[in-house]
Every structure is written in C-alpha cells, then in structure tokens.
C-alpha cells in the first residue's frame, strides 16, 4: 500500500507542529500515522452527498439549552501574580524569551 504521508510530508508536518524529533522517533511516528490513515480511509466509503448535514457538535444548541448572551464586561483576573509565577523566566513582571526568530523572505 502506498504511504500517504511521505518523509517530506512528515518533515513539513513536524515543522508546522514545532516539534524537534530524533530520526528514529520520527520514523516510528510516521509509520503509526500511515497506519492510522488505513482506518481514516474507511471514511471514503461513507454514503454522503452535498445534502448530508455537517455536525461540528453532536447535540444541537437551541434556545432550549443555550445560555442567554451576557453583557461584555471586562474583569480583572484576580490571579495575576500566580499566573506570572508559572512562567519559566520572569523579569520585572515580564516573561523572558530568547531572540524572536525571523526568516528572510525570498
């Protein structure tokens, strides 16, 4: 069976996912993804047409179960310091990161 996800596809996917992967792990992951595609391809046999509904949610949200809209009021989160304390590196209330990456456009 032809592989759906080639090495080149995989390299691009890893880049989009911002993942640095050792070669051996990358090949295992690519193999599993291609195996998963065998299951996903079953969807090609499903009897659907343009009339078939598309469901982003299982159960519909109607007036029966939806919350009424609420006023859009800004609120100060009370946990400012606790949230900042979770950052790996902090300086004067700012989160420290290395240089911002940039690419030369061709």
């Amino acid at each position: 069976m032809a592989e759906k996800i080639s090495r080149e596809d995989f390299r691009r996917l890893a880049e989009l996912a911002s993942l640095e992967l050792p070669e051996e792990e990358a090949e295992y992951l690519r193999g599993e993804l291609n195996n998963q595609m065998i299951s996903i391809e079953v969807l090609e046999s499903i009897p659907i047409d343009a009339e078939t509904d598309t469901a982003a949610h299982g159960l519909p949200y109607t007036d029966f179960n939806s919350a009424a809209p609420r006023e859009d009021i800004a609120r100060q989160d009370p946990h400012r310091q606790e949230i900042l304390d979770q950052a790996p590196e902090l300086e004067d209330g700012y989160i420290v990161v290395p240089d911002i990456s940039h690419q030369e456009l061709e």
């Binding site: 995989f10 996917l13 996912a17 792990e25």
Partner: peptide, 18 residues
C-alpha cells in the same frame, strides 16, 4: 515540545495538522 510531549500528543498533533 520535542522533549516535553510523549508519543501520543505528538501523533495527535501531527495527524491533526495533516
């Protein structure tokens, strides 16, 4: 992300993007 995620989140992210 390469070091912090295990196999399953990596698989799911890559497949989700694909």
């Amino acid at each position: 992300r390469g070091e912090g995620f295990g196999v399953e989140p990596k698989l799911r992210m890559l497949m989700g993007i694909y």
